[in-house]
């Protein structure tokens, strides 16, 4: 087992390198030079050239890449010119907020999605299945940002149950209940699409498994139906559900960008959109690489979970 984890960690190195290459390549496609963007169009050519030199932008691309990588390995992601603060500090602050939001949404979508999928499959063509199917269709069709806005209108503005936006109340907030009150709407809005996808794929996976010969064997042994469904069948279905969860984690992280904007959540997604609109490229570059790297590690966790479940992978 330890060997498998180590192997997966080692195999992540080229992926991480690849990510940096892709990000660097995309960023170097940008027309014009960052110095002009930083200094504004009224800057003198001398100043632009000086800044370019300071930023190392006069060197060949390959060299620039290695300098960038080298700095990142030392924890130096550069400086955001718009915020005038180290990129890494900003990203870490913002990412922790995103982690709370996305984490809550992910747990919601995994638990609810799997339960709904299993029930739906076990009661195929029954009323529960039909209800879940319709709910899933609605869930995956509604844009999360629209849902978020409607939730604000209804639960915050109309019913005044929950705060409109933000992560903590400005006055007297900051404790866990306060966070949970702020978290409820964005987490639910964010998890809805993913819950639908997980439910639908869990249902399909369960239906596939329930036709397998080993389910018939379990029944032939006299195993009760509850245990057949939630034990034998779900365990086998998890083999195809877990990779879906890994992909959904990426969708939840992605959806967080919209939700953070709708609910003014101080997360990394909102930071990235602001940075793009302000052309704060070092912040974009650093933020993308950081979040992608976290996602890669999350996927290693998913793979390890998969191998714990399925002994056939380990060998």
């Amino acid at each position: 087992m330890g060997g498998y984890i180590l192997k997966r960690l080692v195999s992540a190195v080229p992926v991480l390198l690849g990510i940096t290459v892709i990000v660097f390549a995309i960023m170097s496609l940008i027309p014009g030079d960052p110095a002009t963007a930083i200094l504004g169009s009224y800057a003198t050519p001398e100043n632009v050239e000086k800044l370019n030199r300071d930023l190392g932008l006069d060197k060949p691309l390959v060299q620039q890449y290695f300098i960038w990588i080298g700095n990142m390995l030392q924890g130096d992601f550069g400086r955001s010119f718009a915020l005038n603060r180290p990129v890494l500090d900003e990203v870490l602050d913002r990412f922790s907020a995103t982690l709370v939001l996305a984490g809550a949404a992910f747990i919601l979508c995994a638990v609810l999605g799997i339960i709904a999928g299993v029930i739906s499959a076990a009661r195929q063509y029954g009323w529960a299945d039909r209800a879940i199917t319709v709910a899933v269709i609605l869930g995956i069709s509604i844009p999360s940002f629209f849902l978020g806005m409607m939730m604000i209108l209804f639960f915050a503005v109309r019913l005044k149950w929950l705060p409109v936006s933000g992560m903590y109340a400005i006055y007297g907030g900051g404790d866990l209940p306060d966070l949970l009150r702020h978290l409820a709407m964005p987490a639910i809005a964010l998890s809805l699409v993913a819950t639908g996808v997980v439910a639908r794929l869990s249902r399909a996976a369960m239906l596939e498994v329930l036709r397998q010969d080993f389910i018939r064997t379990a029944r032939a042994k006299g195993v009760g139906e509850g245990r057949v469904i939630w034990g034998h069948a779900l365990r086998a279905a998890m083999v195809s559900i877990i990779p879906v969860l890994g992909i959904q984690a990426g969708f939840v992280l992605s959806g967080a960008v919209y939700i953070e904007i709708v609910f003014q959540w101080p997360g990394v997604g909102r930071m990235l959109v602001d940075a793009i609109l302000k052309r704060d490229l070092l912040l974009v570059q650093g933020g993308v690489v950081f979040v992608a790297a976290c996602y890669v590690f999350f996927n290693i966790v998913v793979d390890v979970a998969q191998s714990l479940l399925d002994p056939r992978i380990r060998t």
Binding site: G18, I22, I247, G255
Partner: peptide
Amino acid sequence: MRAIDMLMAFPYILLALAIVAALGP
């Protein structure tokens, strides 16, 4: 497939954002 895996290692919006950032809105 390694290249594809690489692209799938991004949460999709990061890639989309990076592309839009490069090409402009």
